[in-house]
Simulated assay, not measured.
Amino acid sequence: RQLEYKAELHGSEILKVDTFYPSSQTCSKCGYQNKETKNLGIRDWTCPACGSNHDRDANAAINILRKAIEQKQVA
Rank of each mutant, 00 (worst) to 15 (best):
residue 2 Q to R: 15
residue 2 Q to P: 00
residue 3 L to Y: 14
residue 4 E to H: 11
residue 4 E to S: 08
residue 4 E to L: 13
residue 4 E to I: 09
residue 5 Y to K: 13
residue 5 Y to S: 08
residue 6 K to R: 15
residue 6 K to G: 01
residue 9 L to S: 11
residue 10 H to C: 08
residue 10 H to L: 03
residue 11 G to K: 12
residue 11 G to W: 07
residue 12 S to K: 14
residue 12 S to P: 05
residue 13 E to A: 06
residue 13 E to V: 10
residue 14 I to K: 09
residue 14 I to G: 06
residue 14 I to T: 09
residue 15 L to H: 07
residue 15 L to A: 10
residue 16 K to C: 02
residue 17 V to K: 02
residue 17 V to F: 04
residue 18 D to T: 00
residue 21 Y to S: 11
residue 21 Y to F: 10
residue 22 P to I: 03
residue 22 P to C: 08
residue 23 S to P: 06
residue 23 S to H: 03
residue 23 S to I: 03
residue 24 S to D: 09
residue 25 Q to T: 07
residue 27 C to A: 07
residue 28 S to W: 04
residue 28 S to H: 09
residue 29 K to C: 03
residue 30 C to Y: 10
residue 30 C to F: 15
residue 30 C to Q: 14
residue 30 C to M: 10
residue 31 G to P: 06
residue 31 G to Q: 07
residue 32 Y to T: 11
residue 32 Y to A: 05
residue 33 Q to I: 12
residue 34 N to K: 03
residue 35 K to F: 04
residue 36 E to D: 15
residue 36 E to Q: 13
residue 37 T to G: 01
residue 37 T to F: 00
residue 37 T to E: 00
residue 38 K to Y: 04
residue 40 L to W: 03
residue 41 G to M: 11
residue 41 G to K: 14
residue 42 I to T: 04
residue 42 I to W: 00
residue 43 R to N: 00
residue 43 R to F: 05
residue 44 D to M: 15
residue 45 W to T: 06
residue 47 C to V: 08
residue 49 A to F: 11
residue 49 A to H: 13
residue 50 C to I: 05
residue 51 G to M: 15
residue 52 S to N: 12
residue 53 N to T: 09
residue 53 N to Q: 13
residue 54 H to F: 12
residue 54 H to W: 05
residue 55 D to G: 10
residue 56 R to T: 03
residue 57 D to V: 14
residue 58 A to D: 10
residue 58 A to Y: 12
residue 58 A to P: 00
residue 59 N to M: 13
residue 59 N to W: 05
residue 59 N to E: 07
residue 60 A to C: 11
residue 60 A to M: 06
residue 62 I to S: 03
residue 64 I to W: 06
residue 64 I to A: 06
residue 65 L to N: 00
residue 66 R to C: 01
residue 68 A to K: 01
residue 70 E to N: 10
residue 70 E to G: 03
residue 71 Q to V: 05
residue 71 Q to M: 09
residue 71 Q to I: 01
residue 72 K to T: 05
residue 72 K to H: 15
residue 73 Q to N: 11
residue 73 Q to H: 07
residue 74 V to C: 09
residue 74 V to I: 14
residue 75 A to I: 04
residue 75 A to S: 02
residue 75 A to Q: 12
